[in-house]
Write a protein that binds this DNA or RNA. Sequence first.
DNA 1: CATCACGGTATCCTTTTTGACACTATGGGC
DNA 2: GCCCATAGTGTCAAAAAGGATACCGTGATG
Lengths: 116, 116
Amino acid sequence: MPRVSSKIPGVQGCAVERTLSLIDGKWKIVVLYKLLRGTLRFNELRRLIPNVTQRMLTHQLRELEADGLIVRTVYAQVPPRVEYALSVRGRSLEPVLMAMKEWGDTNLASDEAQAA
Amino acid sequence: MPRVSSKIPGVQGCAVERTLSLIDGKWKIVVLYKLLRGTLRFNELRRLIPNVTQRMLTHQLRELEADGLIVRTVYAQVPPRVEYALSVRGRSLEPVLMAMKEWGDTNLASDEAQAA
DNA sequence: CATCACGGTATCCTTTTTGACACTATGGGC
DNA sequence: GCCCATAGTGTCAAAAAGGATACCGTGATG
């Protein structure tokens, strides 16, 4: 991911870039997507997202949390119980996710090389 | 960037991920942004995007072209003249870019740590 | 003759990101 | 006593992305 490019604040397009930097990361979007439907526990996410490793999932969740997009709730139990949910801010990303989904659905459907 | 994660097609959220993979890359979004306003030549883009190196700009433009988002037109002149413009497909990304911009404008404005 | 602008390439190196794999603590079930 | 599940962490290594720098050919300009 880009991870914020220009050090100079105020550069045009900065908002877009910064937004992108928050949802970039190989699994973040999927995580956000899954969470749109409701709170999930760590291993539920793991099962919903095949191929993601524990380390990666943890890492992405930590970044999403640090960016204030999700909320992590730990229940002091044994066995541990940790729940992840979208924060208000995270849920506000829904239009962005949806715009991307719609674009993808109509523009990436079945074919690959369709320039214009 | 993620660059497409799951090999298994049909995974939910795939469209979003693939869309993301197209606009990821440290400068792609800025390039697309600049091109929303009209055709630009290589060095015009360079001047509009401070900090980008020639190598990076070329690279990003090539990927955008390969993905069918922009169109590259070479005029057989000396000195060379190469123009870049959004393709129809590229322009159709406008809602996505705009959704990201609006989100960024309202959610990243001035502050950083505002969880919820 | 030397220099500039154009639109790149080629090469090398560093940083960032991702992945594999092992390991941890606790309590319950068999 | 041994294994399972939970929700991680730590270490190491590979791969990908990004950046710095130098170079190319041409024609006009000085």
